[in-house]
Computed example of a mutant assay.
Amino acid sequence: MQGTYRTAFITGASSGIGRGLAAWLARRGVRVFGAARRLEELEALAREVQSEGEIVPVQLDVADARSTLEVIRSIDESCGGLELVVANAAIAPETPGHALAWDTVEQIIDVNVRGAAATLGAVADRMVSRGSGHLVGISSQAAGRGLPRHVAYSASKAFLSNFIEGLRVDLGPRGVKVTAIHPGFVRTPGTAGNAFKMPFLLEVDDAVDRIGRAIFRGASDFSFPWQAATVSKLSRLLPNGLWDRAVRGFGTPGD
């Protein structure tokens, strides 16, 4: 698999899946531009893998969509063209419908919707001009239906999944690969505070290896683990009344 990509850009690279995927790619010969708000965490990651690969820390807050566009385009120019761009950064604070805090909803939209769209759209046209490239969005199995206490998060992931699919339809014939990743529950800092039982929970290294291999083989859509993916698919067939009763009091897959 080594040498599949020369350069990659990943958001949310300071922790969780993003951190693990940045290291996974770097160890396979990819020069990774790892972006996040916490520069010190990125620098620590770069030192951790420096004997095996290269991670270039990029301090960036994807909630600022305009800045995200500018930073990615600048890196694309300076490195001779990004070959892989991964929109991974996301947040998942609770947004219960009965106590909806607009500040929280707005923050989720800024990061998970505007930030992700800016990340994936920043150099899409340039990849088309080059006739190659790969765009990857880390969505969630929460995208399938609206979920209790996380109404904004599940909606944001539904947006991302459909945005990725539209990109795939448009860009595939133009030589650009597009991949949607739909993880179930993964043990990361983002899920550490969940008070409910997380079925089919995966360790982050396992999840990262699965995601990395799906990217390298050019999968158009990858949902995992299969047990959770099956439940997610079946849930879309349930009538609204059954769905409502089934998920009340339950949680949501996180990043």
Rank of each mutant, 00 (worst) to 15 (best):
A155V: 08
A195P: 07
E41R: 15
G254A: 07
T188R: 04
L201K: 09
F200A: 12
L242W: 15
T11W: 06
S67T: 14
G80N: 06
G133P: 09
G131N: 12
L147S: 08
A8D: 00
V178S: 02
V208A: 03
G115W: 03
D61Q: 07
D244A: 13
Q141P: 04
G97D: 14
I72E: 00
V49M: 00
R37G: 00
M127R: 03
I211Q: 03
L147W: 01
G251E: 09
S51L: 10
Q141Y: 07
M1G: 12
I75K: 02
I72G: 00
V113L: 08
A101L: 15
R145W: 08
A228Q: 12
Q50F: 06
R187Q: 11
I72Q: 00
A35H: 04
G121V: 14
R73N: 04
R31N: 09
A192I: 00
A124H: 04
A214G: 09
M127W: 04
P148L: 12
T179I: 00
L234E: 02
G16I: 02
Y5D: 00
G131F: 10
R38T: 07
P173W: 12
V123E: 09
V178W: 04
R31H: 15
G53R: 09
L39C: 07
A65W: 12
R37H: 01
K157N: 10
I75Y: 05
T4D: 05
A180L: 14
D76C: 06
Y5G: 00
I55R: 00
A142S: 13
A122Q: 11
V176I: 08
G18E: 01
L135Q: 02
F216K: 07
H134C: 05
S235F: 14
I75F: 03
T119D: 10
L100M: 13
L147Q: 10
T95I: 13
F216S: 08
R149L: 14
Q50C: 10
H150S: 12
L147D: 05
F163G: 03
P225Q: 09
A92V: 14
N194Q: 13
S232E: 15
A63L: 05
F200Q: 07
Q107K: 15
I215C: 07
I75N: 03
